[in-house]
Design a protein around this nucleic acid. Structure first.
Length: 972
DNA sequence: AGCGCATCCTAG
DNA sequence: TAAGCTAGGATGCGCT
């Protein structure tokens, strides 16, 4: 079986066909590590520029080179090297500062597997510039009003070369993009993670949902994305109170051609240039600002000051009349900043950008960041236009480790975008060498286009419109309002024709409602490794099905049996109910009683509102699923339909939540909610009993949660498992009223059931599926509250176990990874945690959590840096006193910390983070993972030193000792 | 050391 | 201001 000696060429370890000698693969990785962990020694096809510049930098005249800053020269040399196919950096010489490639500080998101645009191992350049005062001068943030004659001359001389230069710069941009499919994989991350598919670490596969547009009619919507550049002070973030807007970049897009334009997409800019009036387009030296920088392909307008810029923007609005205003981070980088800046200058821009300029009450924005506004995306309110804060939308699209533009673009667009500090961008924009301004402009244009691309690729507008139509609510409310609003919208449409009026309980009434008495069934699993087939079945939309099947509704509920038969009113939901005894007598044969003793009328007497509504939703969902079968080959359409049916499923499921809502509920009713839960529980229990009692299946239920059954079929082959699984599903379905349906989901072979809500297995969903899919629930591989190293090591170990069943391989692997950590050969990103910041007011006084502590420090540093509510705050654990780990913020993962070098607490990472989850998993097969660690040589360092670490600008915030915060809070 | 509590994120 | 639900595991801190 083992095929020794096959070299792992692409370093893609397919664990499915496990033919790679693990040791060899490891040693090869070790080789790579010595050079650099982040780089590939070879240029991949997509890295090479499509059009090599005809004029290489070496052809530039010497004085021209001198005119450029040393940095640019270096960068260009670097480029030329790369174009010759030697992207590999020179071995590092301690004497010379290393030179960064053009996008000098590309952001590497949580997984750094790509060999593109390599951040050279050490690039002290930026730091040096910042530290030396003389150096600071030429690239300081304050623009020089006049250029010295020499530089003007040089500019003229360079004029002819501007275009080739631009092309050189452009090729870097091209290299930044890559085609995922044909690029060979290069696992550059130090901690070896999963290797089945998804080799780049993308969480999202590429599919353009807009391709499914055939379905849509033209919506005649115009979108306008905007990103602006402000002149910042030193290392501070832009602040509209102080920092003027220098330029504003926008991207317009419509599904029909734009007015006065031949295409449906357009990128433009409005630039402040106080000398613009004196510009002479005929002469290069005095040409408009961006022309001097070699920018073309943009619709550029110039303004002599910010107020004129506002006027120009209003003109753009008049011309294109955008329906949707888009920004990746609206508040500080886009529309929010614009409005706040305008307000600071005494201009009420909000009014003038709206479609109803006269309404000063409704046209508003919150200058102060407030948690409610941030949370609900209602910070900005411009009548007639919708403002979208894209990062918040993306948060609902996928569970990522962080939602920076760079990381989201990496996972969704499969593109790398560099991240620059505001200071770098300010320096570039105001630099005497006009070419630098090109870089800044290019940066913003890429981002504003990238933001638009994200929106379009995910078809956010299309899907949101779809949900708005399905629920019958406004577009913006789909994004800003909760699920009660959706349920009510649908429910009231059904209720009104039937002449029902919804109850509106007061806060007191709601609080007085009796407590719920039923909870769903969660079995304690038989926790062990299962080498036999385990079939997973679950009830399709169980709660909604039960509501339909048993006619459970507010309008059909008669209350508890014990309360009936009396003429008096009794407590019911948030209010009370009276059921006349003689009426009850009349109905005596038309009632059902739920397992918890609540009486409901049969649908033959009165069809409930909830049941009819849910039936409609489920039927629609079935229709959608059927059309998915019809269009199976159209992947994009499939995904769209999938999203639609998911939306329907969601609303079906939260309908139960509506009845059971306790503290925020607008019309809760425990009786109804409890009945649903209890009936579901009884249904599941009946199914479990049936499976266990039917001898011919030879089956035993080993786990179940709410609506699912895990059935062990001892000795059954995969084929038999599918057959029996389907039989069970049919048999159980037959014993339940329509539309309650038990569905065969998957076969696990093998699997591990760890605890309640935590399990993992190799999954087969159909008989003809050859390769299993790694499917994990609840364990660390799917959680985002550990560091990536944890999930990577765990996932790989489990796969090794499943495939080889050879524990010595797992042991070797785990020990190898521990050594890497101990030797400081691990990548920082694998050791970076990220936790959500909930906003300062939502923590208990004295709370002591990293996200909160770090936020406090950030505020002390620069008030603009406080994380947004629900933003994820990244940090690492640095070396501290034993048992008292320090945390350190990692804000911009690409800033380079030179010295003294960051010291991460290796012992903490291994013994507290990586090993415990492994131990829990492997304990189940009788293996003591910690003893593997004990066997490692003791001489190893207990800290990891990172000399060339990509760290934050904010290192000067310093590490935080976690108990400090708590002590402070309790003492005051 | 053991308990209670807060926090985070996931399953359903 | 508006805000579907509960169960569950795991970690880390403070207190006894």
């Amino acid at each position: 079986m083992k095929n020794k000696g096959i070299r792992c060429e692409s370093s893609e370890l397919s664990l499915v066909s496990h033919q790679v000698d693990i040791d060899q693969a490891f040693s090869q990785n070790d080789d790579d590590e010595k050079s650099t962990c982040l780089e590939s020694p070879e240029l991949h096809p997509w890295q090479q520029s499509a059009q090599p510049s005809p004029l290489g930098p070496q052809q530039l005249s010497e004085d021209c080179l001198q005119a450029l800053s040393p940095r640019l020269c270096d960068a260009m040399e670097n480029l030329s090297n790369r174009e010759e196919g030697s992207a590999h950096p020179l071995p590092s010489t301690p004497l010379l500062p290393r030179t960064p490639p053009l996008p000098s500080t590309p952001l590497l998101p949580s997984t750094p597997p790509l060999p593109s645009t390599p951040p050279l191992p050490s690039s002290p350049f930026l730091r040096r510039r910042r530290r030396s005062k003389e150096d600071l001068e030429p690239i300081c943030s304050t623009p020089k009003s006049e250029e010295d004659p020499v530089s003007q001359r040089l500019q003229q001389r360079r004029r002819s070369q501007a275009d080739p230069l631009k092309r050189v710069l452009l090729t870097t941009q091209m290299k930044n993009q890559f085609a995922a499919l044909n690029a060979p994989k290069k696992d550059t991350s130090q901690i070896e993670g999963p290797s089945i598919a998804n080799s780049y670490g993308f969480k999202i596969s590429m599919q353009n949902l807009q391709e499914a547009k055939a379905l849509h009619e033209v919506q005649h919507l115009t979108l306008m994305g905007m990103e602006l550049h402000a002149r910042t002070r030193r290392d501070l973030e832009p602040d509209p109170e102080f920092d003027p807007i220098c330029a504003l970049f926008y991207c317009l897009s419509s599904d029909a051609p734009l007015p006065d334009a031949d295409s449906s997409q357009l990128t433009g800019a409005i630039v402040v240039d106080k000398d613009h009036e004196s510009c002479d387009p005929g002469h290069r030296a005095t040409a408009p600002l961006l022309v001097r920088s070699g920018v073309s392909g943009l619709q550029v307008k110039y303004a002599t000051d910010e107020k004129v810029l506002f006027q120009e923007l209003i003109a753009v609005f008049r011309r294109f009349d955008p329906d949707v205003l888009l920004g990746y981070e609206v508040q500080m980088r886009s529309w929010g900043y614009l409005l706040q800046r305008a307000a600071a200058l005494g201009v009420n821009l909000c009014q003038q950008l709206s479609r109803v300029p006269g309404d000063s009450k409704e046209n508003r924005f919150d200058a102060e960041r407030d948690e409610y506004g941030a949370d609900t995306m209602t910070e900005i309110n411009i009548i007639g236009r919708i403002t979208l804060n894209l990062w918040r939308v993306m948060k609902t699209e996928a569970a990522l480790n962080n939602y920076t533009f760079e990381n989201v673009a990496f996972h969704f667009l499969h593109q790398r975008f560099p991240l620059y500090t505001p200071r770098t961008l300010s320096d570039w924009f105001d630099h005497n060498t006009h070419l630098y301004r090109w870089k800044a402009v290019d940066h913003y244009v890429c981002r504003v286009r990238g933001t638009m691309q994200l929106l379009q690729q995910q078809d956010v507008i299309g899907r949101t419109s779809e949900l708005a139509r399905v629920f019958g609510i406004q577009f913006l409310h789909v994004l800003t309002r909760g699920s009660q609003y959706r349920v009510e919208s649908m429910m009231l449409r059904v209720a009104k024709p039937l002449n029902y009026i919804p109850v509106t309980p007061s806060v007191q009434q709601r609080a007085q409602q009796r407590a719920p008495q039923c909870i769903p069934l969660v079995m304690e699993p038989e926790s062990r490794f299962y080498s036999n087939s385990v079939v997973v079945l679950d009830f399709q939309s169980l709660y909604p099905s039960i509501v339909i099947a048993y006619n459970y509704c507010y309008s059909t509920c008669l209350g508890h049996v014990d309360s009936l038969g009396m003429p008096d009113e009794f407590r019911f939901g948030c209010t009370s109910l009276r059921v006349p005894p003689d009426l009850l007598y009349q109905l005596r044969n038309d009632i059902t009683v739920s397992p918890n003793g609540i009486v409901f009328i049969k649908s033959s007497v009165r069809r409930g509102v909830l049941p009819s509504m849910l039936e409609e939703i489920l039927n629609t969902r079935i229709m959608v699923k059927q059309s998915m079968k019809t269009y199976k080959q159209d992947k994009a359409l499939m995904k769209l339909l999938h999203a639609r049916q998911l939306g329907l499923k969601l609303i079906a499921n939260v309908t139960f939540g509506y009845t059971a809502a306790n503290y925020s509920g607008r019309m809760p009713c425990v009786e109804v909610g409890d009945s649903i839960v209890h009936k579901a529980r009884e249904t599941l229990e009946r199914a479990i009993k049936m499976v266990n009692d039917t001898k011919k299946w030879g089956a035993r239920v080993v786990y179940g949660d709410t609506d699912s059954l895990f059935v062990l079929l001892k000795g059954a082959t995969k084929e038999q498992a599918f057959k029996i699984g389907n039989e069970i599903a049919e048999a159980v379905t037959a014993t339940n009223p329509k539309p309650v349906k038990l569905k065969f989901e998957k076969v696990y072979l093998p699997c591990v059931l760890q605890t309640k809500k935590r399990y993992v297995g190799y999954m087969y969903e159909s008989l003809d599926q050859k390769e299993p899919v790694f499917d994990a629930k609840g364990i660390e591989t799917v959680r985002r509250d550990g560091c990536p190293a944890v999930s990577k090591v765990l996932e790989r170990s489990i796969k090794l176990l499943f495939e080889s069943r050879d524990i010595s391989q797992v042991k070797r692997f785990v020990q190898h990874q521990c050594m890497k950590v101990l030797d400081g050969r691990a990548s920082m990103q694998d050791l970076t945690f990220a936790k959500e910041y909930r906003g300062s007011s939502s923590y208990r006084p004295g709370a002591c959590v990293p996200a909160l502590e770090l936020s406090r420090r950030m505020m002390a540093y620069d008030r603009r840096l406080e994380p947004r509510v629900s933003e994820r705050v990244p940090y690492v654990i640095v070396y501290g006193m034993p048992g008292l780990p320090l945390i350190q913020l990692v804000r911009r993962p690409l800033e380079v910390l030179q010295d003294p070098g960051l010291r991460l607490n290796a012992t903490y990472y291994i013994t507290k983070q990586i090993l415990p989850p492994l131990a829990r998993m492997f304990h189940l097969i009788g293996v003591d993972v910690f003893s593997w660690y004990q066997e490692l040589p003791r001489v190893r360092r207990r800290e990891m030193r990172f000399q060339n670490v990509f760290l934050s600008d904010l290192c000067n915030i310093g590490a935080v000792r976690m108990s400090d915060g708590a002590r402070k809070a309790t003492s005051t």
